[in-house]
Design a binder for these strands. Sequence first.
DNA 1: TTGAAAGTTGAACCATTATTCAACTTAGAA
DNA 2: TTCTAAGTTGAATAATGGTTCAACTTTCAA
Lengths: 207, 207
Amino acid sequence: MATEYSEHIESKDKQPRTARGLKTKRKLLDAAALEFGEKGFHEASITGITQRAGTALGSFYTYFDSKDELFSALVKDMSARVKTHAAGAMTEWQDALEREKQALEAFMTFAREHKEIYRIIDEAEFVDPASYRSHYEETAARIYERLQEGSSAGDLRGGLEEAHAWAIMGMNVFLGLRYGIWSEEKSPSEIAELANSLLAKGIAKKR
Amino acid sequence: MATEYSEHIESKDKQPRTARGLKTKRKLLDAAALEFGEKGFHEASITGITQRAGTALGSFYTYFDSKDELFSALVKDMSARVKTHAAGAMTEWQDALEREKQALEAFMTFAREHKEIYRIIDEAEFVDPASYRSHYEETAARIYERLQEGSSAGDLRGGLEEAHAWAIMGMNVFLGLRYGIWSEEKSPSEIAELANSLLAKGIAKKR
DNA sequence: TTGAAAGTTGAACCATTATTCAACTTAGAA
DNA sequence: TTCTAAGTTGAATAATGGTTCAACTTTCAA
């Protein structure tokens, strides 16, 4: 779970100015992702984070203003990484349905490798509601765009709305939780395949 | 949002023994649902609950062992009520698809009337993980049963698995959040209709 | 009517933990 | 090498809020 943290995680005037400082901040960030992921926001403690990071308690405040600020930064970072990871995976697709399948498979793989995303993003509903909402609204918007492209390209039927995007997102999130986090009894590609056939042709019996 | 709290909410030896006691406990329970729904578990305070209920701080502990125990009871109660409400709504259906449509519509209506369910059940992921998991596992199991019945009856295609139930549940939960809690720009029946057509025939273009 | 059980009250207790800070150490430019 | 800025340290601070409890009031069965 090595990590690249992007710029939005930096707070105004707390940037490290030396190599040593940079290294310490990185350690704190990685430790925080683990601590929050394992215990959740409230159970997690700054002490726990600094212990994991192997630094003194006070060092935390050299780089972050507060526990909330750090959590918030982590949420935005997670959200961005999910997005990036999925985008990177949707290459080489024949049609819009194939693309959705790749998106789900990539998401599930990512979730398995970063089991902390669910706890962190889910808990944002309570700790940083604005980020929580943005995360899902933006994700739905991206799916909706793909649906529209799919309709134009003639792969998908017309009349698809924003709500269809939300339905697909919900499917993906719950499948990720059940078969990515809670158990790995089925592979991402199996689940993606199965969800994709539901998406393509539904579950009604042909008559 | 008047409420009937079921038995599992009672703790061992803290049952009220008089009419007055019963009334006080009821006030506390209703106040707690509001307080937790509005603020979430950690922001909610016993003081806040007793103030809403119009009782003294100490009275809380006449009926509950702890904040956690109360929350846990509330989660189980919410879960049971969602289940009951949905079950009550699935009458008069022609086929399995129609039944799923009614289930979603009922769920969305219920969510609008009890906007606290999302906050309470979602936060159970952190406060009472076992109940959180049970809630979704049991819900999925009920959906899966209906799918199997639908297959047997010839309404639905074969080969439907537990994962299909999870996909449907995810759809429902996210549609409920977006169009039940966050905004009411579309009616439950519109959303249910739209989701149902996705479920029935998918979104691929016929060729 | 009466007394014991049930219920009410809110101040006090206490544990937890985020945050501060002043003394100390290290890095690295000059 | 030297000196200042950057970084480190962890004990002390402070605020919060869950929980306890002993005094008080109400209920209701006998």
